[in-house]
Amino acid sequence: MAQSQGYYVPHGSNWPIVGAIGLFLLMLGLSTAFNGVGVGPAVAWIGAIVVIVMIVGWFATVIRESEGGVYNQQVDRSFRMGMTWFIISEVMFFAAFFGALFYARQMAVPWLGGESNNFFTNLLLYPGYENAWPTNGPKAIGGEYQVMAALGLPAINTAILLTSGVTITIAHHALKDNNRKVLSWGLFATFFLGFLFVGLQAYEYIHAYQEMNLKLSTGIYGSTFFMLTGFHGLHVTLGATMLVVIWARCLKGHFTPTHHFGFEAVAWYWHFVDVVWLGLYIFVYWL
């Protein structure tokens, strides 16, 4: 494919402002919805749709330009760096919630149990409460609950995600070897496993809510459990959706063995989601 010599600088684009307005409507809608205003959800939906339209339109433009050969290697490098730093920012987003988990387990709960300089906290406010994990706190917010076991579904889910990490690597090698058939099957397997994971996760949530009385509102254990797994689940959904897009592009014959940033970006993202899960599995389910 012919590659342009210069650094491609687009001249004006409508998508960003559309995206900004979409985000505004989305946030405005959500805010008013939280305040119980009737039109809130509708506004939020409109905003979400505008954002989706923006994403589709924006990416379509980029894909067209990429396939049209206007990007040189330097542009490719910009994209790579951009994606890398975006993923790092996502890592930090999760770090906040992991931080909350560690803080609760190592500091807050022991203190409520009277450790360190909190002897009187325990004595005056929560006599008899002992430091233990998991917990829904000295006032047992949310009532009796059961703890999510590490074996069973979560273990299966771990296996699923790890396998999907392998399948996407197979697909990547296939792409480099120009083996399109293995490529598309590898991708298909990956997002299939991704959606399977989300499905099982949803099943687990329903089970937790209906049978275990384990909820978002089950004290700090429920809060950290659902916050971490929930945001992770959202990221898996997003990643799997991106995989579908990449898969469709592969079927259309996009990407070459040497030139396939779109594929790699999604693969990195997928690995990131994978690694976060490992952290989750260890610290939320297991230890």
């Binding site: 906040a96 709960v109 000295p138 700090i220």
Partner: peptide
Amino acid sequence: PVLAGAVTMLLTDKYFGTSFFLAAGGG
């Protein structure tokens, strides 16, 4: 992103009954 995480926890504490910043629930 850490700030975003922090304010997200405020949001869930207010509207979804989480206990991140509530001692009674272990936060």
